[in-house]
């Protein structure tokens, strides 16, 4: 919401003249038929129950990891007394610093690369009419029809020929384009006020400088949301790194997975500690930027 106040353009509604800011803020909040106290109570109850059910497995992961090794099978809701023994066991076997550094690097470069190619492509689709536009757009949508298992083998062979197997670049390079990014950004670029683009053109700005000085600064909220989404996806990616990095577990998901497979299956303490550690950076990032993620999404009006 703060972003919307900073720059009215982050709001995608193209005609601010026809609806006052109050009406815009109320959009979608308006309950047809008015509010009733009964429905409010039902809403609170249902959502609270569902929320607890959704968060419970995550809570249970951290609760188990913080119990003393003897208490792991205890089902008391609060893990007491606390102990970090499971974490030290997990950390003894995981080179966490190196895994974190590698994974951050891979996820960051992947997300930035996808963002860059998506911005350029979405800009082309939103601003120009050109031959083959529909077909080329379909080429992006169509990537959802191609299962990973179909492209995996030829891509593996190509990486082998390029000498990129067992390198972090091998994980990044094939993932530098995101259909979701192009689709989502196109929605935003399409609803960008055309008068502003026209004004920039009248000022003699090239399309390139219009993109970076007019369009991008005004769409910070959805761009931030998309960046976080892409970063999380790249961070959680498991199968492609597993294929490319067969020598050594260079990224977090692989390290955690091999740790999980190496410990005795009954050692739930260290196991949940490792899983919790792999998730912690993403939760921290999300909590720090939560407002942007939700707003960017909700405002995208994905249709």
């Amino acid at each position: 919401m703060a972003l919307a106040i900073e720059s009215p353009l982050t709001d995608d509604r193209p005609a601010p003249g026809t609806a006052g800011p109050a009406a815009v803020a109320k959009d979608g909040d308006e309950v047809p038929g008015g509010r009733s106290r009964v429905m409010t109570v039902v809403g609170h109850l249902t959502l609270a129950l569902l929320g607890v059910a959704c968060i419970f497995p995550i809570y249970w992961m951290y609760a188990t990891s913080l119990r003393r090794p003897d208490d792991v099978y205890n089902t008391s809701v609060l893990p007491w007394p606390l102990s970090v023994k499971s974490y030290s066991t997990a950390l003894d076997q995981l080179d966490l610093a190196r895994l974190l550094l590698n994974t951050t690097w891979v996820a960051l470069l992947t997300a930035i690369g996808q963002l860059l190619t998506s911005v350029l492509a979405a800009y082309a689709f939103a601003v120009w009419n050109f031959r083959g536009k529909k077909l080329l757009y379909l080429a992006f949508v169509g990537t959802w029809l191609v299962p990973f298992q179909v492209t995996m083998l030829p891509n593996y062979v190509l990486l082998h020929n390029l000498g990129l197997l067992n390198s972090l670049s091998g994980v990044i390079v094939p993932n530098l384009v995101s259909a979701l990014g192009v689709l989502m950004l196109r929605q935003h670029f399409d609803s960008f006020p055309k008068e502003l683009l026209e004004a920039a053109r009248m000022d003699g700005r090239s399309s390139w400088s219009t993109l970076w000085t007019v369009v991008v600064p005004n769409l910070r909220a959805p761009l931030a949301a998309l960046t976080i989404l892409l970063f999380v996806n790249a961070w959680n990616e498991y199968f492609w790194p597993a294929m490319v990095l067969q020598r050594g577990n260079l990224v977090l998901q692989l390290g955690i997975n091999s740790f999980i497979n190496s410990v005795e299956t009954e050692e739930w303490g260290p196991l949940t500690a490792a899983a919790g550690l792999a998730t912690l950076p993403i939760f921290a990032l999300y909590l720090a930027l939560q407002r942007h993620v939700i707003n960017g999404f909700v405002r995208s009006g994905l249709r």
């Binding site: 992961m61 999380v232 959680n236 899983a275």
Partner: peptide, 19 residues
Amino acid sequence: LIFAPFLVAPVASAAVWEW
């Protein structure tokens, strides 16, 4: 609360659910 599980990596959620 409802969104949080979306952030958990499949590897981690597999471990938790197995438990």
